[in-house]
Design a protein around this nucleic acid. Structure first.
Length: 152
DNA sequence: GCCAACGTTGGC
DNA sequence: GCCAACGTTGGC
């Protein structure tokens, strides 16, 4: 069992969108490191910290879980999609993704609070210059986030 | 394989 | 909108 932090712009897909939909395909990842995490290291049932980015109040907005094996991202073959990749061929898809299932919409654990929390200081997403949309989370970090969200 | 130019991310 | 950080591209 692994844990992850996954960034989404709430304008594109918020935790509320995920709650409504139940599950969503995590389309649009166009970074090799993030893709490799999904392709090589994610397992069904892995825990996901759902993070809102590029918005007024960035931070962790809920909990989710990986609910599919990796499979090709259809948007890479769609010329009308902003995620279209002309160099990717259907017989050798370059981009793939997993599906994610809603678990809980939490209070917002704001980025400012995350930065101020000593027990979260090691989180990859907080590293200077970190832009990766998917980062691994340790079991200790996961537990620390849950403790903080439960107000303990 | 180097590396400059360029593009993107994302907080502020 | 700014800009630091960093990934990607492409000429050589």
């Amino acid at each position: 069992m692994n844990y992850w932090l996954m960034k989404s712009e709430p304008d594109e897909a918020s935790i509320h969108d995920l709650q409504r939909a139940g599950t969503l395909p995590w389309t649009g990842v166009r970074n090799y490191q993030a893709r490799n995490f999904m392709r090589d290291d994610m397992r069904i049932g892995d825990g996901v910290l759902f993070y809102h980015s590029s918005c007024a109040e960035p931070g962790i907005a809920g909990l989710a879980e990986v609910c599919s094996a990796p499979y090709p991202d259809a948007t890479q073959f769609d010329p009308a999609s902003p995620y279209y990749d002309a160099k990717s061929k259907p017989d050798a898809p370059r981009w793939l993704h997993v599906d994610v299932r809603w678990r809980e919409t939490t209070r917002l654990l704001a980025l400012t609070e995350m930065r101020a929390a000593p027990e979260l200081a090691t989180m990859r997403v907080l590293e200077r210059g970190s832009r990766l949309s998917i980062t691994p989370v340790t079991p200790e970090q996961w537990q620390a986030v849950l403790r903080r969200l439960s107000g303990a």
